[in-house]
């Protein structure tokens, strides 16, 4: 039964992720041990962050299910609830309702495959969750390619982890920024350009692409040119949501409910939908 009751959680840590201060990561721990155990999610799912007096917002879960003792959400300050959340401090109490929606098929279609992850801007959050999930069972997957771009070095999320991943040797990591910047000796160029240069083979592969619509639009042609098909590509949609449980109707894209049928869809599924997202 749907009760709309969030789990009580406490903010355990806050990290300001970006140089503009607009992205903060919130590490949340459950107040009740039983809830820690009850919570089971899959990378790619989302949850409602609940602030008493402010409301709820649907946010992708940035932590992997393998990080068992806490949840991580990276939140862009944009509206009423996110602004209130950005003003909260460590130790403050709030709520989490979820997990909601369908995640990436890490335990099914992705198993045994080469995985190509392409992320732009702060859409990287659920892909961080995915990568950590994959790394926890690294031998279940083939080659992992991770392409991630942001406007500037200071707008990259999870910079410490990016460095760790770069040193591992079992991830083909490509981190890029839009324009030259002082002190940056990594890749420069938009994500679609880098994806075209990396040209990951579609053979026995699955791609997960999250980013601004314009990035996705320009990333697809270079991939299609080397044989990628719409069934191999997973995207994640977002729409305004209220219940997150398939009842309130807000997030519908034609006959499809983003909260219930998604947010993760194959590109083939997305192409069949009216453009209402």
């Amino acid at each position: 039964m749907i009760s709309y009751m969030p789990y009580p959680v406490r903010i355990d840590d806050i990290v300001v992720e970006t140089e503009d201060g607009n992205q903060k990561s919130f590490k949340l721990v459950f107040e009740n041990e039983a809830h820690t155990k009850a919570w089971k999610h899959v990378a790619g799912q989302f949850a409602m962050l609940s602030l008493a007096g402010q409301g709820e917002i649907p946010i992708g879960i940035a932590s992997s299910p393998t990080e068992e003792d806490h949840l991580l959400f990276t939140v862009n300050r944009a509206g009423k609830v996110t602004t209130a959340l950005h003003q909260m401090t460590i130790g403050d109490r709030m709520g989490v309702r979820g997990p909601l929606g369908k995640g990436f098929p890490v335990d099914t279609e992705m198993k045994g495959k080469n995985i190509v992850i392409i992320a732009g801007g702060f859409a990287v959050t659920t892909l961080r969750a995915t990568l950590i999930s994959l790394l926890a069972r690294r031998s279940d997957y083939g080659k992992i390619t991770f392409i991630y771009g942001a406007r500037t070095p200071g707008m990259l999320l999870y910079r410490d982890e990016l460095q760790q991943w770069a040193q591992r040797g079992d991830i083909d990591l490509h981190v890029t920024i839009d324009r030259e910047a002082p002190g940056w000796d990594g890749l420069v160029g938009f994500v679609p350009t880098i994806a075209g240069q990396v040209a990951p083979s579609p053979e026995n592969s699955v791609a997960l692409i999250c980013g601004p619509p314009i990035m996705i639009k320009f990333t697809m042609p270079p991939l299609e040119a080397i044989g990628w098909t719409d069934d191999q590509v997973y995207l994640s949609l977002e729409n305004r949501m209220k219940c997150g449980e398939g009842v309130c109707c807000h997030c519908n894209v034609g006959p499809t409910l983003v909260c219930k049928d998604g947010p993760v869809f194959t590109r083939r599924q997305v192409k069949k939908l009216p453009i209402e997202y």
Partner: peptide, 14 residues
């Protein structure tokens, strides 16, 4: 049957 969800606080009671 669609609905909106909002928080409403009156004199400290929400």
């Amino acid at each position: 049957y669609c609905f909106d969800i909002q928080d409403e606080v009156v004199r400290g009671q929400g």
